[in-house]
Design a protein around this nucleic acid. Sequence first.
RNA 1: CCGCCUGUAGCUCAGCUGGAUAGAGCAACGGACUUCUAAUCCGUAGGUCAGAGGUUCGAGUCCUCUCAGGCGGGCCA
Length: 721
Amino acid sequence: MPLDGIRNAAATAIADALENAFGHRPEEVVLEVPPRRELGDLAWPGALPLARVLRQSPRKIAEAVAGGASWPAEVLRVEIAGPGFLNLFLERPTILRRVYAGRRDSSGTGEKVIVEHTNINPNKAAHIGHLRNAVLGDILVRCLRRLGHAVEVQNYIDDTGVQVADVVVGLLFLPEDEIAAALGMDGGSRRALLDAVAGRIPAVGVPAASTGDFDDLCWEIYPRVTARYETDEPFAARRAEVLHAVEGGTGGLGLDEALERLGRAAAAGEPYPPEAVARLAASVADGNVRCHLATMARLGVAYDVLPHESDILHLGFWQRAFELLRDSGAIRLESEGKNAGCWVMSLAGSPEFADMEDPDKILVRSNGTVTYTGKDIAYQLWKFGLLTDPDGGRHDFGYRPYARWTQDAPAAEVRYGGGDRTLVRTTSDPSDRVEGLQFGGGSTVYNVIDVRQSYPQKVVREAVRVLGHPEAADRSIHFAYEMVALTPAAVRAIEEATGASFGLDEAAMAKAYVEMSGRRGIGVKADEFLDTLEARAAGAIRERSDSGTVPDLESRARGIAVGALRYLMARQSRNRVLAFDFDEALAFEGDTGPYLQYSAVRAAKIFDKLRERRGEGEPAPDELERLAGTAIPDDLWELVLQCARTGEIVRQAVANLEFSLLAQHAHELAQLFHKLYHGHPVLREEDPDLRLLRRAVFSLFVTEIRDILETLLGIPVPEEM
RNA sequence: CCGCCUGUAGCUCAGCUGGAUAGAGCAACGGACUUCUAAUCCGUAGGUCAGAGGUUCGAGUCCUCUCAGGCGGGCCA
């Protein structure tokens, strides 16, 4: 990056000057961009803290540096301001030419980085909280790739948990009329209802996303089940029964045959055959996964591999992790006390857990079953390639292709059903291999999980550490973010629209926000919200169009909807609850995604018209030599300077896992451009040098904003708005 | 009880290695479209940065305490 080059050169010059004048060389010299352009283009505030060390007044130090440094040629002059700031003024045309010529920065180690995100329970439709996870995870992936890393994206599928079992309990044991109601049918036998349900399960490929999908059906059924658990004890007992059947496996049974057996059992009033129940559960989970992939595809989010919990279980990942933990002495079997009979890991040795009342974490229950955290430890070890067999080989999954996909542009929707990219799922047969593809074994692992999982995530990291892998523990990064909740106004809006009541009391509705709950059916479904956004966007496009028919209305509306949504998720800092409000989320004006998109569209339009009417396009880099010696006004220059800072912002955003910085940077660029747009016409400007300057600055902006929006934030830039 | 997070304009939020005059958007009011698209721009108004101490040349930012709100600390997932 050209700006970085000058920064480094100036920093060295300052360090040298300090050494010459005072015999003191500071460890690092940081140059910042001052808040206002009249103060200069770069500033060194370091004289102030040095005053004490050198026992000199800050201004004296700054003066000595200003006079004694051999500044790089691009530094036009230096000034000392305020208490002792050293401000540098750069030769603007030279910098502009360099920024313009040398875009794109791909430094990095090239090490494999694993990012796990999305991870939606496959028992119901995705809601807007899942979108925050997926969008943040996806932006992290995009930024890591920009920094030169090879990134593997994993979407973990918890296909054997109780939540899937709950839906199966509903399908098999809820009264027929309730299931019929969810299906929109008048009634029918259990057999007929199960057939109708099965008819809606996508079994292959990824369906087109809609709000009447299989996952939406599960969204209806799941809360009915959890509600009934409260009041109907025999019904509640079915949960353990179904879970047990799921653990027993499907025995290779197909879905049709399973439905046949389930139907026969229902008709005869006999118990359901366990392997048929397990088959139904597997199909329910898989059907939901396919629906979730469809939802995320709309946003341009894709994955490399889908690790399945069932495969972790069947392949004995935990058994192997257990042996490693036991052999290293990291865990012990408690013989007495409240944890008698459990295998526990002591966290007492770690300072992070030092003042805990009970620093022992149970990994294996007294009944011999493993906890969720235990499975997570095994999975985390596998991600680093540290889950090894006694012979030293890696304990691994089997793999098979799950779907093909393609993406036409960096922020375009993901299209399944063909294309050159393969999405792979794990299998329980380690001899299954997908040629040319290997998974796991990353050097750094990011787990994108909401902040409430901080404690178990710490435990997992600690387990990696006590197994003798402190470097992997340090590279186990929990990307924690706060949840999405609903404003009371949003809750009322949903209740009004659906005619349902969530039964929230006054106290709950008086709070700042209401937590979403799949169990209670409280939430805004992702696909539904995207549909609403698209409809609103289409309406806005039509309103602004003077002709009756709008070409590409659908794709333009889709782009605006995705832009609004992704920016909404990205602009808020991660450790604040996002209180979802319809009015705010559906806004297309002000600090929104469409504002950013509009700046890109508007700027690109300048060059369309320019080509059309003057035969001029974006200037060639050597054309800018003509600008040598031109005075570049502060406002245009500000845009150049900010464009040059993108690389710095990306590094900062990744280091802090704070992508609101990047969103804010994009907003600042768009804002600078929109302000300039009115006062700096290009097409009508007759002075060729001034026109060239504006062309250069706006061309820089077009490239930069497009790159930030599409490649980094995943926000598409439509042709027109 | 312990730990983590949050508290900035009427509302929603930026302010990220302590730095120069605390910024946006929404809402309110007043302006700018025969112009490269007004999803824009310009202006007015709006602040004890929760409170109190401290460190520092300098604190919204760091430290201590207090207050208020949220989330964790399961042999649940």
